[in-house]
Design a protein around this nucleic acid. Structure first.
Length: 576
RNA sequence: GCCGGCUUAGCUCAAUUGGCAGAGCAACUGAUUUGUAAUCAGUAGGUUGUGGGUUCAAGUCCUAUAGCCGGCACCA
């Protein structure tokens, strides 16, 4: 739990850290000009224009050394409030600061000065640079000025400050730990998936990854069946006319893979909704059929920018665990409450914490009336509260077609991922002229929700790999059980009887009967993170027992075969 | 797409100022018959991402290009 006060103090420290870094950079590169240097969730950064000089990570120690020197000098950090005119005069040679100052209306303009370095800043800051002792510069990168891709690129240096050496060391240790969990690394080691330069952004699923996928997808079908969903599968390629109706042809074309077939253009679907709309229109619905819940594990392709690709987190083909829900207006709130409870149940199984954010109507570029938007947002918020969740609002972050609830997952290292989302859609039912027949015989427009729980199966698996550090719980592990006969010849029969018995019960099990010492085979089972290792030797064969050792444990225990089976079956069933 | 970095055997990594491409693990062969994190010996494994260039000589320098990584922008 983060102590809010300490957190605020750390923020001040980090902001002062940004200034300290800027001062050091200015000393080493006198031509440097600075844009903004805010505090972020972890540390700070500063955007810098260095002219022709290009920084790389190998330059960071030099800057750190200069920072240490400045810190040691221990100059006071002095605040000064000045008029806009004075500010414009003082920073007249710095176009970046001038830009900031020009945009300041009705605010107190202040500067902070430490030694020879003065920076425009709202503050607050620590009293002297001496207080900034335990810091580390972490990385450099490019960043567009004002975050706009049309602007020039500045150089951004990231760093972090802590109030103690231990806290800094601990943070650096966590960064190392996170690296060890990298799903790209573990995916290779555990043979889950691979990438090829022949298909950038298109993952290849290997046998063990397919096992994991299939388990997740089966789990998804089972849970959705319990929730009253029906299922469809729509084509991955559909003609131009459909995408014109949906609007994608005009709004999303540059991200779509398009192909000429005979004399028509077809596009590979970047989203499942339009196909789903066609299915809805395939028959006539009565109000008695609603709410209608239609799920689709839908394979989509999107031509993402090359620089956006990142392992399984960002790919060009992925499977959305999509569903479209159609209902009458007075069913919406209950349906959302029900969805939130469903999401909650699923995330809890994986031990993933989450928070919910409500994204509301964009400033401009939206469809539908403000009244409908306001009502929709009210319903989403109210459903959240009814479900016992606090809601953070992201003003203006909704889709053009409706407001949405986003589920931000937290993995075991506390990192956040946006996965699930519930979106209210006022656009497609209109565009596709969806209707149902109401009790009075009139045709009405259904309310439609899109929702995903995993987000994408690919990204979710990436998150799970890192969340579990590759050591999956028994029900998910591609290799569940490894049988290790102490002497592969002498204990061969018992090992294989045991294997057949476990296979018949649905376990994924292998006998490691290679001509290697037990220690060697056991080491490998541990390194491959196989959850259950069963050693069998003379004693076990004689007593119909196994010696069971778990992944990550030094200890082992001897149990009767029947008891072991009973325990493991319930462990899988309960998804522990 | 933009900025920066990286790319050597299946994997993890060496190779001094440009001077004979190497190690461990894995694989294969043989010996060994194994009780809780590596038994021993041997064999094989490479157009150093790809294409140009500089040089007597390029893994190393220049250049183009692809892919990957860290960010930015975009986003499930």
């Amino acid at each position: 739990m983060i102590n809010i006060k300490e957190h605020a103090e750390l923020n001040v420290l980090n902001h002062s850290g940004a200034h300290l870094m800027a001062q050091a950079v200015k000393r080493l590169y006198p031509q440097a000009m600075f844009w903004v240097g805010p505090v972020i969730t972890e540390g700070f950064y500063y955007d810098i224009d260095l002219g022709d000089v290009v920084l790389s990570e190998s330059d960071l120690p030099k800057i750190e050394a200069e920072m240490k020197k400045i810190s040691k000098d221990g100059k006071r950090i002095v605040r000064e409030e000045i008029s806009k005119e004075e500010a414009l005069e003082r920073f007249k040679d710095d176009p970046y600061k001038l830009d900031l100052i020009h945009n300041m209306e009705g605010v107190t303009i202040s500067t902070y000065k430490q030694g020879e370095f003065e920076d425009l800043c709202r503050g607050p800051h620590v009293d002297t640079v001496k207080q900034i002792k335990f810091f580390k510069l972490l990385k450099v990168s490019g960043a567009y000025w004002k975050g706009d891709a049309n602007n020039k690129m500045l150089q951004r240096v990231y760093g972090i400050v802590f109030d103690t050496q231990e806290a800094l060391d601990n943070h650096l240790y966590l960064l190392e730990e996170a690296k060890k969990r990298d799903h790209k690394k573990l995916g290779k080691e555990l043979e889950l998936f691979m990438m090829s330069e022949y298909g950038p952004g298109f993952p290849f699923w290997l046998n063990k990854g397919m096992i994991l996928r299939n388990i997740l997808e089966n789990f998804w079908y089972e849970e959705h069946t319990k929730e009253g969903y029906e299922f469809i599968k729509t084509p991955i390629m559909l003609s131009q006319e459909l995408w014109e109706v949906s609007g994608h042809w005009f709004n999303y074309k540059e991200n779509m893979y398009i192909s000429d077939v005979d004399d028509r253009q077809f596009a590979i679907k970047p989203m499942n909704c339009p196909g789903g709309m066609l299915v809805y229109k395939n028959r006539l619905y009565s109000y008695k059929d609603l709410p209608l819940r239609v799920g689709e594990l839908g394979l989509v392709h999107r031509h993402e920018a090359s620089g956006a690709l990142n392992g399984l987190f960002r790919v060009r083909t992925f499977t959305q665990d999509d569903a479209h829900l159609y209902m009458t207006p007075d069913q919406v709130e209950d349906e959302i409450v029900r969805l939130i409870a469903f999401f909650d149940r699923v995330y809890k199984i994986f031990g993933l914490q989450y928070s919910i954010e409500l994204s509301t109507r964009p400033e401009e570029k939206y469809i539908g009336s403000i009244e409908v938007w306001d009502e929709s947002e009210r319903i989403l918020e109210s459903a959240c509260k009814k479900s016992g969740h606090s809601v953070k609002v992201n003003p203006g972050d909704g889709a053009f077609y409706g407001p949405k609830l986003d589920f931000h997952l937290q993995d075991s290292l506390g990192r956040a991922w946006q996965c699930g989302t519930i979106q209210l859609d006022m656009n497609l039912p209109e565009r596709f002229d969806l209707t149902y027949v109401d009790s009075d015989g009139s045709k009405k427009r259904p309310i439609m929700l899109h929702r995903v729980i995993f987000g994408s199966v690919e990204r979710f698996i990436g998150i799970l790999i890192e969340h579990y550090a590759g050591a999956f719980p028994l029900w998910l592990a591609p290799d569940q059980i490894r049988i290790l006969p102490v002497n592969p010849e002498i204990h061969h029969d018992f090992a294989h009887e045991l294997k057949d018995q476990l296979l018949a019960l649905g376990f994924r099990v292998e006998v490691d009967e290679r001509n290697e010492k037990l220690g060697y085979r056991l080491r490998e089972a541990q390194m491959k993170k196989v959850p259950i290792q069963l050693t069998i030797g003379d004693k076990e064969v004689e007593n119909k027992e196994v010696n069971l050792r778990r992944y990550g444990s030094q200890a082992s225990e001897t149990v009767k075969v029947q008891e072991m089976i009973k325990n493991l079956l319930s462990e899988v069933k309960e998804k522990r």
